[in-house]
């Protein structure tokens, strides 16, 4: 099975890391693009994201990436992996930048961690949530294959996802609040952490994505 991966580029930062990690994980070809024909022709799609939500959403809409993503997901039914701000952009609304309407592909809110933030014992937690935290695999999924429950992944974010439909949660994170570390629905998998920066566990997840047929 060949795997040509389109990494959707809406101009918000460097996507080489995602592309090189996908290549390292075994992708035949990785295209960093917002070209409709290239994205439609790809076997699978990665929807990354970095930066502030207001600017991200503006660029996603300006370049028509919202439609391209919807086509890949719903019409073409291709495996799609959303990462970090890419995951947040799927939700209904984000509290970032004073409030931003997002793509509403998954009902739910993107919330600020809070300041001050404390854990259950009253210890102060820093924001952004930056570094390696444990992900609890709350349900089985092909993308968890070969990755132990509780494995640490690399996170860097000040806002977190809270999906309405709790059945979609594939991975959970505890950081003062209950946050969604991974969501899964049909041919879509989304991670708040950065698999491309999560060393061997992250590369394993990307390898799993490259071999995934889009079924849960």
């Amino acid at each position: 099975m060949t795997s040509v991966v389109a990494v959707i580029d809406y101009g918000m930062g460097n996507l080489h890391s995602v592309a090189s990690a996908l290549e390292h994980a075994g992708a035949d070809k990785v295209l960093v693009t917002h070209d409709a024909a290239q994205i439609r022709a790809a076997d699978r799609v990665v929807f990354p994201g970095v930066g502030a939500m207001r600017d991200c959403m503006a660029e996603i809409r300006r370049l028509g990436c919202d439609q391209l993503l919807a086509d890949a997901l719903v019409e073409q039914h291709k495996p799609v992996l959303a990462i970090c701000v890419g995951m947040q952009a799927l939700m209904t609304h984000s509290q970032e930048n004073g409030g931003v309407d997002c793509l509403n592909l998954i009902p739910g809110e993107v919330r600020f961690f809070g300041n001050p933030l404390t854990d259950g014992d009253g210890n102060r937690l820093k924001v952004p949530h930056m570094g390696w935290n444990q992900v609890r695999q709350v349900r089985d999924h092909p993308l968890w294959h070969g990755i132990d429950d509780g494995t640490r992944f690399y996170f860097v974010h000040s806002y977190y996802v809270d999906a309405q439909d709790r059945d979609l949660v594939a991975g959970a994170l505890d950081y003062g609040v209950r946050a969604d570390a991974a969501l899964a629905r049909d041919n879509l998998f989304a991670t708040q952490f950065h698999p491309e920066k999560s060393h061997t566990a992250g590369l394993q997840l990307l390898k799993n994505f490259l071999g995934w047929n889009g079924q849960c």
Partner: peptide
Amino acid sequence: MGLAKRII
């Protein structure tokens, strides 16, 4: 368990 302290 929570966020790991990082070695850089």
